[in-house]
Design a protein around this nucleic acid. Structure first.
Lengths: 355, 355
DNA sequence: AGTAAATTTGTGCACGTACACGAGTGTTGT
DNA sequence: ACAACACTCGTGTACGTGCACAAATTTACT
């Protein structure tokens, strides 16, 4: 095992004291250019890695982290994101991190606005954003930037912002996967349909749009001539959408595969099952408890998973790296793996392997 | 954030010194029954969690870890396992862990025997085993148990042994997935074939067997009448198997889907491509560089991934938990997720997210 | 009872880093 | 030339735990 280089050794190499090295590592300033250069060279030469363990115990600053995401419900997408966040915070529980959540209703822009408005005034050390409404998010980011507060994105990235780091999935790829799966699972001469969420200025809808683009791109890529109907049914609440779903299927009897481009595939699946329709394959997003149940039943054929826990987990860890050590990565945008979950491998996806 | 309870506070509660608490936590003995009881009660009341960070820095013992796995080649299965192992060791690099590898040839039982024989004499603190040959492994485990040396399994678990922990995939599930995928990707009236590795007393072959069982189970479960040929072609070396492969296909022209139940699917795929056969779908195992290339080419349709890095990573972490803190888990056998990788999601699987 | 031995218990130092404080150096203005 | 100031830099202490060693207590035996 390679011996760890310690701050004192760096100090000796650079001909300065340990305190100076510390100042440089933490970007605290008050260091002469010569010392800076000498130490940086020593750091580079030795490939110094700060010892997180000891640095944690001697840390005296207190950090406050605000996490603003759509209301996290256990067993649903944002619930898993929160789980990952909590997991990371627990791992760093010996650092004084005061964290608080600012939840908002992902279908109500006003709840988002009022949640976002208060954040900069609370003067947090950093903010974790699960964005839904692009314009509101941009305003928040702008204010955070002005205040010098770093922020990170989970789940999606908003254009024209400058997050320290982001963890999300490539929604276009997700859409392509859905395309391929539906194409495989349905007869060549049958039609396909897309159910998605439509809301203007809603980033969730932007996710859906990217997925849709990917799906169409897949069929274009394989030069398929299959008919793909875009339903205007908004699959959000079971009660309201049930009738719309049945209407749609009655009008489009050749549709044998449906992509639900949000996480509400179970609503469609349940409706189909209740009405004895079992020759229509459903593919949807996110390993929520309801969707998992449908996979097990066989009413949903495949789920695209995006590792929400891992996104929350890594976002927090990255934020702490930035807060504690000002470590900036080259490429701050991380794409998470896109998992394909079917009945057979569902059980082994239930145990979550973060950290 | 809940305040951490420290050893000193426990000591005060129990009316003893910190040293005594330390002795009890580490089972060092030399403690009176009264102190023992008092401290244990205090520990239970407060739900004390040792601080891994600080304990690591003050740790003075040296640990030695032997990792005995099939020769790790970069970009192949065991190479990824090793990557995960190294990653975990790096995370704990402030603990004095002396680790060494005892590689063996997974196709040569004598190399395995001679690698295993030496291990107990080296008196390691713990051993990590990537098992291939069941009987040899059993002998090793037996000797380790007699010497009181804990050991862990990665990739596969051998019957009649008592590992402290294991990280592996459910091979039966893997086989079922392959079954479903091939069934989806090929015409209903076409035949399927299985290529696998056959070696008596070879656990790699046992893995193959479990996969085969799972595959057949899938087709039985859906009451399919498809013909599944079991080829005796051993897909190990490109040169030797090429002719056999072509012979097989010539004799079985209706085979349109082939499951290669080891990680050498690329050999079959390359052979098919070179001979202009592009209507036979191939599914195989493990995200090796060669298989990834074939996925990208489209010559392999799907790969089953088993998260080898994560297996190595977690196995080491679990071993260290056991060595350092004697933490025994309830259920020591962990099943890793079984990923389905196709052309579309291959890019996002390339970045590995361990820890 | 008195002493030696055995056992339990407390104390102090070390680990590597963070950060406050004060010492040291240089610069500017009168 | 000297004071006042700005800035850089080194020293010392604290963090929570592991572990060696010494101190205190109990036990055993003459």
């Amino acid at each position: 095992m390679a011996k760890q280089i310690k701050i004192k050794e760096i100090a000796k190499m650079a001909g300065v004291s340990a305190g100076t090295v510390d100042r440089i590592i933490h970007n605290r300033g008050h260091v002469s250019p010569e010392s800076q250069a000498a130490v940086e060279q020593a750091l580079a030469e030795t490939g110094y890695k700060y010892n997180l363990h000891t640095s944690a115990i001697s840390l005296k600053r207190e950090y406050s982290l605000i996490i603003t995401i759509p209301t996290a419900v256990e067993g649903e997408y944002w619930g898993f994101v929160q789980k990952g966040i909590e997991h990371a915070l627990e791992e760093y529980s010996d650092i004084a991190i005061d964290h608080s959540y600012a939840f908002y209703n992902q279908f109500d822009i006003f709840s988002c606005k009022s949640a976002f408005e208060r954040i900069p005034d609370m003067k947090p050390s950093a903010v974790l954003i699960g964005a839904t409404f692009a314009s509101e998010t941009r305003i928040l980011c702008r204010r955070l930037e002005d205040a010098g507060i770093p922020y990170a994105f989970v789940d999606s990235v908003i254009e024209d912002t400058h997050p320290s780091v982001s963890y999300s999935s490539d929604q276009n790829i997700c859409g392509r996967i859905v395309g391929r799966l539906l194409n495989l699972m349905t007869p060549r001469d049958s039609e396909l349909a897309i159910f998605s969420t439509r809301r203007i200025g809603n980033e969730r809808a932007l996710n859906s749009m990217a997925r849709m683009t990917g799906l169409h791109a897949y069929f274009k890529g394989i030069k398929s001539r299959r008919v793909i109907k875009e339903s205007k049914v908004s699959v959000i609440e079971p009660a309201t959408s049930r009738k719309d779903i049945l209407d749609f299927l009655q009008k489009n009897p050749d549709v044998k595969g449906i992509a639900v481009l949000n996480s509400r595939g179970y609503i469609l699946a349940d409706t189909l099952a209740k009405n004895g329709i079992n020759d229509v394959k459903v593919v949807t997003f996110d390993l929520t408890v309801n969707n998992m149940r449908c996979i097990q039943d066989g009413t949903i054929s495949a789920i695209i998973g995006q590792r929400p826990e891992l996104q929350g987990f890594h976002a927090v860890k990255a934020m702490l790296r930035i807060l504690l050590y000002n470590i900036k990565e080259k490429d701050a945008h991380h794409l998470m793996p896109t998992d394909i979950i079917i009945k057979e491998n569902l059980p082994v996806y239930k145990e979550i392997f973060i950290d």
